[in-house]
Design a protein around this nucleic acid. Structure first.
Lengths: 171, 171
DNA sequence: CTAAAATGGTTTCAGATGTAACTTTTCACC
DNA sequence: GGTGAAAAGTTACATCTGAAACCATTTTAG
């Protein structure tokens, strides 16, 4: 597994210089870097399902979770995709209108929806998933096995930490 | 975006199991994890400047870059903040209206704007920056020095790679 | 049993955002 | 110099999004 040649500033030889203490250097600011990275990657993947199937990001996320866990309710989909219930409601409506998702309601509790991909939805799912995974793979093959594990740990640690921040820092 | 719900797997004790090959497990999918992490962190920081100063994210980014590099043009601000020029134009308008940014135009080229924080803008900047940095620090202090360097390298590598993806994968 | 609270989901309305068209100014070239 | 192409910004329009209000159903409490 060969590493690509280092580029403009990807060589860890010179550690990113911390600018004058107390200054905010956007290029070195973790939240900003994460945002740029995330948007760049999501954009690349979105090209796959937006161009070919006219799916929005929330729609694709709903399909992704239903493909793997059929029968969830809208609230469960919202929880699993980290989207709010309004976004899920709208995504589901459009998916039903497009014939990609089927909905029925639970007998025991007629408020609770039961969502599944339709055959057509399943077909889309099975076409998009390999491309999404291929794209992820082509990103990650830049990393060694050890880096991959570091990445995994780092993301978990940071997310864990970030969740505490946003709930505990309220004045 | 909405705050993601609490999660179940955050202990890095067991390495993330790769699910059945070819299946898309959202929780293990890098683009999704990055998106959730980025939104969670950005949301936490946004609380600082949105609640107190009514700044939107694009507005804050413009201020952040002007605080550090006064005198940039709108196009340069757009490039440095990774936002498109319409977003910058609108952010600058609102910032000018709010008295936080001053604009003049270059003598040599009267299309080119020259943007700076006003005194009021500078005051906001100097109040928000330490809080943003503190938040970043409290995130990063979960990491060892070596992890910090790994993170730095990983982000650079991935971004580099992601940029190629989105430009080279067009059919 | 029934009134109030809670839950699942949808709708509404106002503000945000992206794409494309447009204006103004400068530059390239003949 | 004059004309067309390019660059910097702004505006228009259509869509998207988020917060809050809303409806229907179920649960809880008295």
């Amino acid at each position: 597994m060969s590493r690509p040649p280092p580029h403009s500033r990807a060589t860890p030889s010179a550690p990113r210089p911390t600018p004058a203490a107390g200054a905010l250097e956007l290029d070195a600011f973790l939240p900003y870097r994460l945002s740029v990275l995330s948007n760049t990657i999501s954009g690349a993947i979105a090209e796959v399902y937006q161009q070919r199937f006219g799916l929005s990001i929330p729609e694709w996320r709903v399909m992704a979770i239903l493909g793997r866990y059929p029968g969830l309710s809208a609230a469960e989909v919202a929880a699993r995709t980290a989207q709010d219930k309004v976004a899920v409601s709208r995504a589901v409506s459009r998916l039903i209108a497009a014939g990609r998702v089927q909905r029925r309601f639970a007998d025991a509790d007629r408020r609770r929806s039961i969502l599944e991909l339709s055959a057509a939805g399943q077909a889309v799912y099975e076409e998009v998933v390999p491309q999404a995974l291929a794209l992820e793979r082509s990103l990650l093959e830049a990393l060694t096995a050890s880096e991959l594990e570091q990445l995994d740990t780092l993301l978990d640690t940071l997310l864990e930490r970030a969740r505490h921040l946003s709930t505990s820092e309220l004045p």
